[in-house]
Amino acid sequence: MFRPDPNKTYRMPPWFGGIDPETTYAYINDCISLDFSFTSDGKWLADFLPEGFELVRPEVSIAFNQLRIDNFLYGGSYNLISVNVPARFRGRQDQLEAQFPLIIWENNTIPILGGREVDGQPKIYADIQDLHFSENTYFTNASYQGNTFLRLQMNNPKPVSQQQLEQAKEAAKNANKFGYRYIPKVGGPGADLIQSTVYPMSMKLTGVWIGEGNFQWTLLPQVYRTQLTNDIDYYNIIKQLATLPVYETKPVSMSAGSLIMKSAESRVLK
C-alpha cells in the first residue's frame, strides 16, 4: 500500500516516488529578461489582489523571461511572460513586500505544474516565442490556439552605468514573488484550500540594458468567450489586462544572468 513519506516532496502522481525537499531548487544558468512597466489605475489594480494584500503603488510590470540550461529540465529550456504588480502582505505574523503575479504564461508543462500545485503561482499555458533580434530590435510574442495576444518589442538597448548595474545586482538578490494557492473543491463550487504564499528567488546579474519599446495586446476572437467546463477563461484574462489604463510608460529594461528559484524555501504566509 502506498503511503506518502511526510519528509519527502511529491508531485502527481505521487505513488511513483518522492524527492528530498533540499533538491527542489531550480537553477537556470542562462536567463534573459525584458521588463515593460507602466503606471495605471490604482483602484483597478487593487481589485485584483486577494484579502491580506494591498497595492504598494499603481504600477504594472510585463516581464518576459527566456530561461536556458535549467537543471530540472536536464539542461532544457522554456519561456514565460508574467504580469505583476508591487504588493504588500499584512498578516498576523508576516509583513513583507514583493511582486504579486496576476498571471504567468509558460510554454512548458513541467514548470507550470510545480509552480501551481506547490507554490501557488498563477501559471497557465501559452505558445511563447524565443527572443528574436534584428537591426538592434528585440521582439517576441505569445499566442493561444494560433492567435497572437501579446507582442513585446525593445529598440536600441544601451548598457546602464556601472553604478546602476551594481544597484540592479543588489536588488536582484531578492526577486521574491507572492503566490495564492487556490485548490478548487472536487465537484465544486468553492475551494478545498486557499493559502497566500511567498516564493523566494534570486538572480545574479551580468548585464543590464535600457531602451525604448512597446507592448501590444490583441483580444482573442469572440469564439473564445464561451467558457467550457473546467476551461481557463483566456478571453476574459486577456481582455481585462488589455483594457488596463496606461498613464505613463517607463523605459524598457533588459537583463542577463542566472536565476535560482528556491521552491524548497516557499512558505505559507500568516
Rank of each mutant, 00 (worst) to 15 (best):
Q216R: 09
E170I: 13
V208L: 08
N174Y: 09
Y224G: 02
F178I: 06
N174F: 07
F178C: 01
S196T: 11
K169F: 06
N174M: 10
P221H: 08
R181P: 02
V223I: 12
Y199M: 12
A168P: 02
A171I: 14
V198G: 00
T218N: 15
I194A: 15
T218Y: 10
S196Y: 03
Y224D: 01
G188E: 10
E212Q: 09
R181E: 05
P189H: 11
T197A: 01
E170M: 09
E212S: 10
Q163F: 03
V198L: 13
A191L: 15
L219I: 08
N174D: 10
G188Y: 11
P221C: 11
T206A: 11
T206W: 02
Q222M: 07
G187S: 10
N176H: 15
G179D: 03
L205H: 01
I183M: 03
K177I: 05
A191V: 15
E212Y: 04
G207M: 02
G207S: 12
M201Y: 03
A172S: 15
K173Y: 09
N174E: 12
A168N: 06
N176L: 05
Q227W: 06
F178L: 05
Y199W: 08
L220Q: 06
K173L: 14
L165M: 15
A172W: 00
A191Q: 11
Q164T: 12
E212N: 11
